[in-house]
Amino acid sequence: MNIHLRLNLRAILGRAYPRVIGSLREPSWIFFEILLPVLAIAAYVFIYQALEAPPEFVGFVILGGAMTAFWLNVLWSMAAQLYWEKEIGNLQLYMMAPMSRMSLLGGMAVGGIFGSSIHASATVLIGVLLFKGPALVFPLMLIPIFLVTLIALYGMGMMFASLYLMWGREAWHMASLMEEPIYFVSGFYFPVKALGFWVALSASVIPITLGLDSMRQLLFPSVAAWGLFPVEIELGILVVLAIIFPIMARIALARMENLARRRGGLTLRWQ
């Protein structure tokens, strides 16, 4: 096998390992990351029920709640991660190693997707059992939509990882700022089209917006008309995002590393 390919595959697995093991090893994780977020989405379900909304809306909330797991993971454990690695002193060891920096981020993404998938599945399962939404259908199209959404989403996280590092101390605040405002503009709990076409279209630059919209259309065909675009077009846009974000991530990483080597300090602790 080509040495670069082998090295980078090993690096991906190596970096994914602490994510997978770390998240399984700390037992308190199960309590906080799975059980309690279900309570949070329950609040939204009850609002819809209090307003006597049709049953599909309950489904929207469960779906949005599940996808929250991936969004939070991308924000806190991808975008802010390089900054965090720098603070604990790991980043300079990574920067000195021969593997591609993309495989480092790739490893984080693989590990993060693993943990978040458990979180999301549990949210869906408990949500469906507790709050009977409408009858569900599972068209095959759901699989490519979900996968492409994740690739685009984690690609965006990878891009932010380098940008956050360059922005320095603002990493924490940036991640925090992208919680509620993104839940809102990306339509985590309601059809995004309700924000108006242009707002929804602008929000589509965040992959989760169209990912959610497509999944809503596929899972609840009775309200498919509330979708922003037909699913095929949304898949097309998502594919484009899934290509663009990793490329931009690569450019941002190279730029960040170059800046770090020229200026000194960027990858070093407490600088």
């Binding site: 082998r6 970096r15 990574y94």
Partner: peptide, 26 residues
């Protein structure tokens, strides 16, 4: 002065992880 690594991993897991960035067979 270094104490790099991840607190939740064992010492052996930590050094193994870093070795994987250098193409060392597991």
């Amino acid at each position: 002065g270094e104490s790099s690594g991840y607190g939740l991993l064992t010492a052996r897991e930590n050094v193994w992880m870093f070795s994987q960035f250098y193409d060392v067979p597991s």
